[in-house]
Amino acid sequence: MDLNVAAYVIYLLISVALTIWVARTLSRNGRVFLSDVTQGNEKLADAVNHLLVVGFYLVNLGFVALYLRVAETVDDTRELFDALSVKLGVVLLVLGVLHLCNVFVLNRMRRRGALERETVPPVSPQGWAGRLDKTPPTVS
């Protein structure tokens, strides 16, 4: 087997496995944040969580596919490991950046929901409370 083909196969196997692992971790733990943001609306939290995971898969697997090509031919085992380390390192960095972006977005959504809950009064206004003494104000 050509070592370039071996590099492609190993790169794809590791990259796809890492993408699936990170996506499942984001899905499982991000659901807690989304449940808080949606104020306990589990169906909405699950739907948003699923959409975020699908977007994560699309972006990362698209990047993995675009970054598949090895620039130079791989002639020996050392070059195989060199090519794989560079490619997998870049994929891991992209996964990390996407993970941080997801956490940042989820945290912003959670904070905004918490602020909205704090600014809404517990009881809706019942009307205008006028003056208690019923005397008209005097102008001086």
Rank of each mutant, 00 (worst) to 15 (best):
G55F: 08
V53C: 12
A114C: 05
V5R: 09
P125W: 10
A6K: 10
V123D: 06
D75S: 15
F63S: 01
A23T: 12
V32A: 11
H99T: 15
Y57N: 12
T38W: 06
L100D: 07
L66I: 07
T119A: 13
P125D: 07
V5F: 06
G113V: 06
G130F: 07
D2G: 03
V74D: 05
A65H: 00
V103Y: 05
Q126N: 07
A65N: 03
K134V: 14
F81A: 05
A7S: 02
S27Q: 15
T135G: 02
R78M: 09
R24Q: 15
L66S: 08
R28M: 08
R111W: 08
E72M: 14
L66K: 05
S35G: 14
D2F: 06
T138A: 14
I20F: 08
L26S: 03
L88A: 03
H99F: 15
G40R: 07
W21T: 11
G62T: 03
D133I: 01
L66C: 05
R28N: 11
D75W: 14
N29I: 06
F63A: 07
V74M: 01
I20L: 13
L66D: 02
C101I: 13
R69I: 14
N60L: 14
A17T: 12
I10S: 08
L115G: 12
D82H: 08
L115W: 13
D2L: 06
T38M: 11
G130S: 02
Q126Y: 01
R24I: 11
V22H: 02
